[in-house]
Amino acid sequence: MVNLSILVGNLVDSPDLKYTKEGTPVAHFDMITSETWSDGDRKKESTERHHVEVWRGRGEACAKILTKGSLVYVLGMKITNKWDDDRGQTRYSTVIRAQDVKFISVKK
């Protein structure tokens, strides 16, 4: 079985770097990917927003170098978290846990 996601897209905002209780760094950022195609004489586009988390040294590098609009390549695993909110509703969130991040074009 393989759980592998490959994304190339632009950051929505600069990464947010936080630390766990144990002091392990983790950066979070959202990125946008899009797909375009033609439907007869009409051009169509579909855009997706992805939540990405990057751990340890790679996360620190992302937080230090990347900014809003940077173009990145992300290789990682799709992780779905499940919890019950305060009203008893089951909630889900999906994140890409990056194993590798390549900086294609960094915005200053």
Rank of each mutant, 00 (worst) to 15 (best):
E22T: 13
F29W: 02
D41F: 05
G69I: 01
R42A: 12
H28K: 09
K44D: 00
D30H: 09
R87A: 14
E48L: 05
V74D: 04
P15G: 03
S5P: 00
N3S: 11
S93W: 06
G57K: 12
Y19P: 07
R91D: 05
D39W: 02
Q89V: 13
I96H: 03
E48N: 08
D16G: 01
T47F: 06
T94N: 04
R56A: 15
T20E: 07
K82L: 15
K18E: 13
P15L: 08
P15W: 03
R56D: 12
L11I: 01
H28G: 06
G59N: 07
P25L: 07
M31H: 02
S34E: 11
E48R: 03
S46K: 13
T33C: 01
L66F: 03
L66I: 00
G59I: 08
F103T: 07
K44E: 12
K102V: 13
E45H: 10
Y19A: 00
K82I: 13
R97W: 08
D13K: 11
A63P: 05
S70Q: 10
S34D: 08
K21D: 07
N3T: 06
T90W: 05
A98M: 10
T94M: 05
L11A: 02
L11P: 01
V8C: 05
R91K: 15
H51T: 03
V54H: 06
G23S: 11
G59H: 08
V95K: 12
D16I: 02
K82Q: 15
V52G: 01
T47Q: 09
S46Q: 12
A98L: 09
A61W: 11
K68D: 01
T94C: 06
R56W: 08
I65F: 14
T24C: 10
V2G: 00
R58Q: 14
V72G: 02
H28T: 10
A61E: 11
Y92T: 11
T36W: 06
G59T: 06
W37R: 11
D41H: 09
L11D: 04
W83Q: 09
L75E: 15
I96Y: 04
K102P: 06
L71Q: 07
K102E: 15
T94P: 10
S14C: 02
A61R: 14
E35D: 14
